[in-house]
């Protein structure tokens, strides 16, 4: 009885990439943000959908806090973070009256909002839609994968930090991807090293190499290591012009190379 899926609001979106990790605090939101900046740098139009309902971080990182989502003719109009309107963003953070308010929701309510996020946001024309997820393998993940399945996402980018504790959770996330039939585009190792600003010694704060080893072990592509960059964190937090600052960051080469790999996954000229 089910009719062919209406592409609806995702009709103008060319590629959908999910950013996942079993572990919290490994930098999913940071990587999503940085990747959006890197893709923008390559001249692409990017949307970010933040489905972390209990801890939305992207509005703050992109300095879009306190902005409001408007209702348009075809649905919710996402928030544009730059003047050129090349990055648009949707997050539960825009729907809260108080920024400190806790979203104390059990699964079914979270699922309902995620479905709405997937169907009711008027993204318009996008080259990439990045979907940032909360840690774990539970309600939000199943809901978003189910809702996006008819739109054939390109796959998932799995983020880890180098230590074994994080790698353990990420192994479980890879199992999740396999079980739900989501292709893994590749693994990204975040927070690989920290260069001391005083003596330039590079310390592997969270050890090193775990991501690459895991990728080899699990047979998924390793996309690269992104170093810790306090300057970029500060730039994101201070609300400086991160778009301007971004190319100077030590994280930039790593991110550009990851963006290039994603771009090469998707031969141009399909549309």
């Amino acid at each position: 009885m089910e009719a062919a899926v209406e592409p609806g609001n995702l009709a103008g979106v060319r590629h959908i990439v999910l950013v996942l990790s079993g572990k919290g605090g490994v930098g999913k939101s940071t990587i999503s943000t940085e990747l959006a900046l890197a893709l923008r740098h390559a001249g692409k139009k990017v949307g970010i959908l933040d489905v972390d309902l209990c801890g939305p971080s992207i509005p703050r990182m992109l300095r879009a806090q306190g902005r409001a989502v408007h209702q348009g003719d075809s649905g919710w109009v996402p928030v544009f973070v730059d003047r050129e309107q090349s990055i648009s963003l949707m997050s539960v953070g825009f729907l809260l009256e108080q920024p400190d308010e806790a979203v104390v929701w059990r699964g079914p309510k979270k699922n309902a909002l995620i479905k709405q996020f997937v169907s009711d946001v008027a993204w318009g024309q996008l080259d990439y839609l990045l979907v940032d997820t909360p840690p774990g393998t539970s309600d939000e993940h199943m809901a978003v994968v189910d809702a996006l399945r008819p739109h054939s996402p390109l796959g998932a980018l799995v983020v880890t930090t180098p230590q074994a504790v994080s790698v353990g959770d990420v192994r479980r996330e890879l199992t999740f991807c396999r079980k739900v039939g989501l292709r893994v585009i590749g693994l990204v190792e975040n927070m690989s090293g920290f260069v001391c600003p005083h003596c330039s010694e590079c310390t592997n704060v969270f050890s090193k190499g775990g991501g690459e080893e895991l990728a080899r072990h699990a047979g998924v592509p390793f996309l690269g290591s992104v170093p810790l960059d306090p300057e970029l964190t500060r730039s994101l937090e201070d609300g400086r012009d991160f778009i301007q600052d971004f190319p100077d960051s030590p994280a930039f080469p790593a991110l550009s190379s990851i963006a290039q790999k994603i771009l090469s996954e998707t031969p141009a000229g399909l549309s």
Partner: peptide
């Protein structure tokens, strides 16, 4: 705060901007 094992000086990896 992070104490560099080489020079023992402290720096902020996750700066407390607020």
């Amino acid at each position: 705060g992070f104490i560099c094992p080489k020079c023992q000086k402290e720096s902020q990896i996750f700066p407390p901007t607020t």
